[in-house]
Amino acid sequence: MASSAPPRHVAERYYQRFDRRQRVTHVFLMMSFIGLALTGLPLRFADQGWARTLAGLWGGIESAGFIHRVCAVVMIGAFVSHVGQVLWQVYRKRDYGALWGPTSMVPQPRDVIEMYGHMRWFVGLGPRPKFDRFTYWEKFDYWAVFWGMLIIGGSGMMLWFPETFALVIPGWVFNIALLVHGEEALLAVGFIFTIHFFNGHIRPEKFPMDLVMFTGRVPEHELLHERPAEYERLAREGRLGLYETTPPNPRSAAFGRALGTVAVTLGLLTVALIVFALLM
C-alpha cells in the first residue's frame, strides 16, 4: 500500500466506496466470467492439447457447454440487475449524477485530460493528475465489460438458439456471431486477466491486491492519495461525513483475498495457455 499511511497508533478513518449491491454484483460477475472463460476457451483453441484436457476436466464438451450457459445466465442476470439499478437511479430517484459529472461512468473531457496527464506523469513530465471518483482506466474497464457483454451475450444467445433466431435472421449472421463471440471473448479474457489485474491489483502500489471491491471501504490516506479530487469535492460539499464508515469487515477481507487469489491464479494460468497457443 502507499507509504503515506498514518502512524499505527492513529485510528484510520474509512470511507464507503462501493455499496453491498455493487460488491455482490462484482463477485457474481467475476465468478461467472472465469467460468465462461474456462469453459469457452477449449473450443476457441480446440487444436491445442491443453484444450482437450480442460474440456475433459469439465467432464466433456456437453457439461462444459452446460456450465458455460449457466455462467452466461448468471452474468446476464448481473448485467440486467446493474442496468436496472442505474435506470432506477435516473428515472425514479431523478439522480442525474449517473449520467454526467464526477460520479458518472460516462466518459467526459476531463478523462482525456487526465489520461494525458497520467501518461506525462509516467515519464516524469508532470504531477500525478488529481483523480475523482472514477478514473479513465476504470471507465475503460467498465465500458469494455459493458460492450463485451452486449456483443458476447448477444452473439452467444444467437449461437444458443440458432433455430429461433433463424426465424428472422439469415444464417450467415451466425458466422459473424461465432467470429465476434470468440474474438471479443479473447479480448475480454486477455484484458481482464492482464490489464485489469494490473491496474486494479498487482501494480506496485496495490500489490498483491486491492480489497476495496470486496470490503467496499477505503482508508482516508488512500482516498487522499488516489482520488484527491473526490475527497476535496466531498469536503467542499460538506458530504464527507456521509461516507464515513466502519473499518473493513475482516471476513469480507478474507473472502476477497481468497477469491482474488483464486481468480488471479486461474486468470494468469489462462493467459499463459493463450500465449502458449498463439506462439505455437
Binding site: P162, V168, P170, F174, N175
Partner: peptide, 12 residues
C-alpha cells in the same frame, strides 16, 4: 437442427 429453415441453412 430440427427447427432449421431456409434462413438457417444460409449459415456457412
Amino acid at each position: 437442427h430440427e427447427g432449421a429453415n431456409a434462413n438457417f441453412a444460409k449459415y456457412n
